[in-house]
Amino acid sequence: MSPSARSFLLHLGVIAGLFVLCFTLSDYHQGNLARIMVLATYAIGYNVLFGYTGLLSLGHAMFFAAGMYGLGLAMQYGGMSPVPAFAVGILTAAVLSVVVGVLALRTIGVAFMIVTLMFAQSVFLIILYFGTWTRGDEGFVIPQAARQVLGMDLTDPLIRYLAALLLFSSALLITARMMQVRFGRVLIAVRENEERTQMLGYDVFRHKFLAVLISGSISGAAGAAYGLLFGYVGATFASVQYSIFPLLWVLLGGAGTTIGPLVGAVFMFYLIDYSSGFTNAYMLIAGLALVLLVLFARAGIMGEVRRRWAPWLP
């Protein structure tokens, strides 16, 4: 079987597996997985820039929050229905990505990290500054009655799960396909050796810029979906912590692998959820797990799988 057929089957298998799970899981785990899929979508967006293009951003929460507030404000003050509001959310994140891309891509390496961090911090403070509309840190609730699409109730656990699955599979398939075509291969070339890619005649800036745009828009879609599916919009999601999370998920799951973001998000969620069951010091356990993982499985979970057993893994 060719690698691309294998990877196609793998992604189809993951999506089918998630679909089946929603009928077999308990209510609790079904709810969790719906949440995780939205967060994994955020991580997929992050992975485009970090895992494939090699640009480490410390400010992705601004894109997540832009999508979330774009949707939330459009629904709250524009009276929009979820579908156009969702589009507004993605558009908001896309516009922000363009601005950030144009400015931040003038820098590389640690300077890029700091510039993205600073932009995200500004977005966080701007949300607080316009508290009259955003309700700042407290945020606001999108009423249950407004969260209906085409007669379907997005607050119903099953429909919510399927909506999250739709979002996740779209992001997964789009990025997986992207990495098979030339555009994606150039991104990887940029990651591996920027100068050489430039010398080969590729427009490196244009590729990096598009990577920021795609990455930011997917992250924004995840943010908008989070607001829509779970009914809450708040500044917390723009804080530094929420910029660190996707980095962690991607590194844990395996940077530059297509399903690594999902694996990392699942792993981190259940690590905290499970360990908080017997100790309040679950952060200690999470910390230890991170250290151990990085000591003994440096490439992340899927990265190790690829290295040891399945070199074809996309």
Partner: peptide, 29 residues
């Protein structure tokens, strides 16, 4: 930790995030 990671940039970021959690939680307790 760090020595065993051969000071690899990405790995040390994750490891120091882990150390951050450990130290914070220890201080809390």
């Amino acid at each position: 930790v760090l020595k065993r990671l051969h000071y690899d940039p990405e790995a040390t970021i994750v490891a120091t995030i882990g150390i951050l959690y450990i130290m914070q939680q220890t201080a809390l307790m």
